[in-house]
């Protein structure tokens, strides 16, 4: 419990140790702590940015999906409409062609009828001439009465 010069030595040691710590121990650790703090802050900021861009992307993708759906629905509606139109067109075409065919057939039939009528007329005229010839064999000269026969043929 005696005091002696150890006191002064201890004072010197005290300041040397404190100086040493201040110079070589404290700064690197503090620097590392500060750097880590800023790293963490950067990381948090980056995470926040990432979250925001994720939100944005989600919104954007929802928009794209909705747009796609709309477009798809539109295309389907368009296609259905087109199909209906095509069916209608096909029907109309078919009808037109059928009409043409029917008209052609009718014309042919009429022609045939005209031809048959013509030939029938010829035949009846011949028959009438033949009949008349048989009746008038003796007194009628086919050559002399040709104009009468032609007039009868004309009336048939």
């Amino acid at each position: 419990m005696n005091l002696n010069a150890t006191l002064f030595a201890q004072i010197a040691v005290f300041f040397i140790l404190a100086w040493f710590t201040m110079k070589f121990v404290w700064p690197p650790v503090m620097k590392a702590l500060d750097e880590r703090a800023s790293k963490i802050a950067d990381g948090l900021a980056a995470a926040e940015r990432g979250r925001q861009s994720l939100d944005l992307a989600a919104k954007h993708s929802a928009e794209v999906v909705r747009e796609g759906k709309d477009k798809g629905a539109e295309i389907i509606a368009h296609a259905e409409q087109r199909a209906l139109q095509m069916i209608e067109e096909a029907k109309a075409q078919a009808r037109r062609e059928a009409e043409l065919v029917v008209a052609g057939a009718k014309a042919e039939i009429e022609q045939e009828a005209v031809r048959v009528k013509e030939s029938l007329r010829e035949r009846v005229a011949e028959l009438a001439v033949a009949g008349a010839e048989k009746i008038l064999r003796r007194e009628v000269d086919a050559k002399a009465h040709a104009d009468i026969l032609a007039a009868i043929k004309q009336d048939l």
């Binding site: 010069a5 006191l7 040691v13 040493f20 070589f24 650790v29």
Partner: peptide
């Protein structure tokens, strides 16, 4: 009770030794 011509060698030795031990442990990590 008070004599400034005397120095306690053991106190000096162990306090310096402990001081150096602490400092070098911290320095080694730092």
């Amino acid at each position: 009770i008070v004599d400034f011509s005397v120095i306690n060698l053991d106190t000096i030795f162990f306090s310096v030794a402990m001081g150096l031990l602490g400092l070098f442990l911290m320095l080694w990590v730092a």
